[in-house]
Nucleic acid binder design. Structure first.
Lengths: 148, 148
DNA sequence: TTTATAAAAGATGGTTTTATCCTTTATAAA
DNA sequence: TTTATAAAGGATAAAACCATCTTTTATAAA
């Protein structure tokens, strides 16, 4: 559906957003650990997210990654766009180059419903909203079940 | 969303179904040509579909691929299952190993809607239905626009 | 200004997916 | 039975994706 890079990126962004208090900056090691993603690969992905102004980074001592107030309001689809591009929301389900309502593949109508639902899922959800759920403890961004 | 192999497989199956007249058998070269897919790769894919009894093949002269009456009624999801498996309809959108209604990732609810829509698209559509559309000329399985 | 730190950038390796080629097997007609 | 044909099966190659390592750059504190 979406690439692993994109999944890591979304989880990392949500984690960074969930720690948007004070002026706290998070380093790559901690982020990768918290979202169960490979460290070096996650570093590459966060580079891209920084370039697209989805998160912000600062080099040097006391540096790291963080998210600014205005960035919290962005829809998650911005992350998908930065890493995978928008083609998954546009392309034909059967891989045809030309497929549209006026020249459809046999599955066009049914597939479009699913494709649009996917786009809505990412479009209508803000990074802030997801981070709040994580902070509330009502949802999770790693594979560690912590019972206390 | 689904692999290229699976897209080629669905297009090939629809084409074979659309030629389900008399006892006609289609060879791999013709099928690959008609659905704009690489020939050798398509051969591998049709091998799998034959193994899963989604289509039928016969070796030797006057052999080839065809589809039997009972096979026409199968839902397209059988093809997806044969080639890609069912994981795309089950797995977490953010790549978590453990993600469910009771232990959800932050996008679980929204993503599940899209994932279920995709499953429905493939589950509720029979190979026969798609082949009929192609025969009617109301939908297409290749990239060649034929105007006459 | 020097030093330590953390991300950015570049090079490289491994795995999976996509794709092709060659040999073998099954089958039908001559 | 021989021969021609077409799919099956095995080996291999190319591309894309996933992942890591090393060097460079920016920055803040001492």
């Amino acid at each position: 559906m979406i690439s692993k890079a994109c999944q890591y990126g979304i989880r990392a962004a949500i984690y960074i957003a969930s720690r948007h208090n004070d002026g706290i900056k998070l380093n790559i090691k901690q982020i990768a650990c918290e979202v169960d993603a490979p460290e070096a690969f996650t570093a590459k992905i966060l580079q891209v997210l920084n370039k697209y102004h989805i998160i912000t980074s600062l080099k040097g001592p006391y540096g790291g990654f963080f998210i600014e107030e205005f960035q919290l309001e962005q829809p998650v689809i911005n992350i998908v766009n930065a890493i995978d591009g928008m083609s998954v929301f546009k392309e034909c389900g059967l891989g045809l180059k030309q497929c549209s309502a006026s020249h459809p593949c046999p599955m066009h109508d049914q597939y479009k419903i699913a494709r649009d639902a996917l786009q809505n899922a990412f479009q209508q959800t803000s990074i802030r909203h997801l981070a709040m759920q994580v902070n509330e403890g009502s949802s999770f961004i790693n594979n560690l079940v912590l019972k206390n």
